[in-house]
Design a protein around this nucleic acid. Structure first.
Length: 630
RNA sequence: CGGGGUGUAGCGCAGCUUGGUAGCGCGUUUGACUGGGGGUCAAAAGGUCGCAGGUUCAAAUCCUGUCACCCCGACCA
């Protein structure tokens, strides 16, 4: 086998094994597998799922598991190759790690627990605990600590394109949320954050590479600031394909271009004022079995925006930290129609926090589900954090006293007419003025549409939907410290290596592209990732005909010019071929029929144009294609 | 994990209430006619009705269990 492949290399017409110009492929529809269908499987809902299924790109094997048929694989290969080129250009080296891994690897970072049920775990026949990799930080850190021993080996950036596994509770939307999916993951290693070869430089290089990758793929995308999430680390950006059907919400400042996901998005300054007269006598209401805002809202017929939501956090830190911070609990208060943001609570409190364990909080005297801001007063070591929109004594819209409903601090009860000054247990206006360190007003909620932009005064944030296709993180030393990946620097000091990690959901990108752009006839591929650039539709498949001769000649010329060509040589009626050509979304269609051919022409049509297309001289059509494909 | 739903031919579905010969459309095969946006006619192939028990002379249909899958929610690099 080796021998024959060597021979073939020599037969390559170029006589060289490097630097040859790319030659396109020519495939016949009848000699590949493109099972198009009129009906999508009944479980397909998302447009990308329906169209990729109907077009014969993918086929479902099990929940969240898909076969990539030739058409689908061609698209994935094209995306992968763009990713490869840009990663290599940015200094990355491709390699491959296993997907099947011993769970032992996760011991040092504790991520088997952190991932929980999302991790595909099982025992092999010898009883060894194993898992299928959802990501590979531990694996590569383990590799590197056994391989790299000097700062002279750094900086480095390694990447792989590989199948990943996540045991999603609910896979959905076809390729958009799978249990098995194709992903590119890259990892960078550096000795410093700043300076040449440092993390920041590597991160910026990846940032630029990602922008080029998604531009080259022909995607309309937004780069947003993001929370780094469970992977950990210090800075992070997401690349979102702009698409109204996207699962993720991003916030955009229309003036400055600032963009962030809802979790990360800052808000501009918002005014607050606790002062204001009570809207009425404090009144207790029986709300049995209604700990949630929505239930209470329905039961009491009160709008969520008139309710105060109080969420109990526990400070998560060492005894020494406790001494320093002097607080053990954090009560975060936001308006009922807003969501508390844990990251912002952490930043405002100045220490790590976790959502309190219900039992533990109850033991401390918090009536979980029925807590009010008053619960913070009179207890030792409880910080009261209030979002500006909740810290209002007057309803700014009407000018009337603000009507608040909040918990009654006992199970199954809420109160009406809560007033900050009268009912808190201490005067918040006075407390603020005196610099009370157990009362703070700060932005602690997720941004919503209409919030003031943090970057431009008087400009409101807009909400947009997107599909996350890329994510880059500055990891820092999280993994190298946990796993003892330290090497000597030029001063002979042992230091943990500084890491970054960079992911692209390759299979998700394919689906996101279909979500982003399609029409009632089918998929519309951007040329760089289309499975074929041109589909030739001969109106007869009689091999001896002029039509077929021209089809052969044209496909050869197109391929030599670098176009991937699909020849629809099926014995089907024209209507069927046209419908299928539109469905699979090939950017250019050339119909070769006797009538036009008699005048030396063929019909040239761009996928998104209506009608038959335009008659172009056979001799000029290759150039025309190349011009259109840019 | 909570709520709802579905498993019948490759795909989409009917039949189940009221037990008795397994059906329709698309697709597939053969033949003829056709031939520029999913054609027409004729013939044919293809199903242990998710699986396992039970009731019954008889189960796709009723009962019990089980598995799988989907939708909404919760969760989510």
């Amino acid at each position: 086998m080796n021998q024959s492949s060597q021979t073939e290399t020599k037969r390559d017409g170029s006589g060289s094994i490097v630097g040859t110009e790319r030659r396109g492929v020519i495939h016949s529809w009848s000699r590949t597998l493109i099972p198009t269908a009129k009906d999508a499987p009944s479980d397909a809902e998302a447009p990308s799922h329906k169209l990729l299924s109907r077009g014969g790109f993918i086929r479902r094997v099990g929940a969240g598991i898909y076969e990539y048929l030739p058409l689908g694989w061609r698209v994935l290969t094209k995306i992968s190759n763009i990713v490869r080129e840009e990663m290599d250009a940015a200094g990355g080296s491709e390699f491959l790690m296993p997907a099947l891994l011993p769970t032992e690897l996760l011991k040092e970072t504790g991520r088997a627990e952190a991932y929980g049920d999302l991790l595909f775990r099982f025992e092999d026949r010898h009883g060894r605990d194993s898992y299928l990799g959802p990501t590979h930080e531990e694996v590569i850190t383990d590799l590197m600590r056994g391989t790299i021993s000097s700062y002279k080996h750094l900086p480095l950036n390694l990447y792989q394109i590989q199948t990943k596994y996540r045991d999603e509770f609910r896979p959905r939307a076809g390729l958009l949320r799978c249990r098995e999916f194709l992903m590119k993951d890259a990892y960078s290693f550096a000795m410093s954050v700043e300076g040449p070869g440092g993390l920041n430089e590597q991160y910026d290089a990846m940032d630029r590479a990602y922008q080029r990758i998604f531009e080259r793929c022909g995607l309309d995308f937004t780069r947003v600031e993001a929370e780094s999430g469970p992977i950990g680390g210090s800075a992070s950006h997401e690349f979102m394909v702009n698409c109204a059907t996207g699962e993720d919400t991003i916030m955009v400042c229309p003036k400055t271009g600032y963009a962030a996901n809802v979790e990360k998005c800052e808000t501009g300054p918002r005014k607050h004022d606790f002062a204001g007269d009570p809207s009425g006598e404090l009144e207790e209401v029986h709300t049995p079995g209604c700990p949630g805002i929505e239930d209470v809202s329905k039961l009491m017929k009160v709008k969520p925006r008139n309710m105060l939501k109080t969420v109990v956090f526990k400070v998560q830190s060492t005894a020494a930290d406790l001494e320093k911070f002097g607080e053990e609990w954090v009560l975060a208060v936001v308006r009922g129609d807003h969501d508390v943001n844990e990251g912002k609570v952490r930043d405002a409190a100045g220490c790590p926090v976790v959502l309190a364990d219900a039992e533990e909080a109850k033991a401390k005297g918090f009536a979980i589900g029925f807590v009010s801001p008053r619960a913070a007063v009179g207890k030792k070591g409880v910080l009261l954090l209030v979002d500006p929109d909740a810290a209002q004594g007057v309803d700014t819209a009407s000018g009337k006293p603000m009507f608040w409903v909040t918990g009654a601090d006992k199970v199954d009860h809420h109160v009406k007419h809560f007033n900050w000054v009268r009912d808190l247990g201490k005067d918040p206006v006075e407390a603020e003025r005196a610099g009370d360190k157990f009362l703070m007003v700060a932005d602690i909620r997720n941004a919503v549409e209409g919030d003031p932009s943090p970057r431009a005064e008087g400009v409101a944030l807009e909400a947009k939907r997107g599909i996350e296709v890329g994510h880059i993180f500055k990891l820092g030393t999280k993994y190298s410290e946990a796993m003892g990946f330290e090497i000597l620097d030029e001063k002979q000091e042992r230091r943990p290596v500084i890491m970054g990690c960079y992911g692209i959901g390759v299979s998700r990108t394919m689906a996101a592209c279909v979500e982003m752009i399609h029409d009632e006839n089918g998929i519309v591929w951007p040329a760089p990732i289309a499975p074929y650039h041109v589909i030739l539709v001969p109106m007869t498949n009689d091999a001896a005909s002029d039509v077929m001769r021209v089809a052969c000649d044209l496909s050869g010329r197109l391929a030599r010019a670098g176009c991937d060509v699909l020849v629809d040589d099926r014995d089907e009626r024209p209507g069927v071929k046209f419908k299928d050509a539109d469905l699979i979304g090939v950017p250019l269609r050339i119909v070769i029929g006797e009538k036009a051919l008699a005048q030396g022409g063929v019909e040239f049509k761009v996928r998104t144009d209506a009608g038959k297309g335009e008659v172009v001289a056979v001799d000029g059509v290759v150039e025309r294609c190349l011009a259109m494909l840019g």
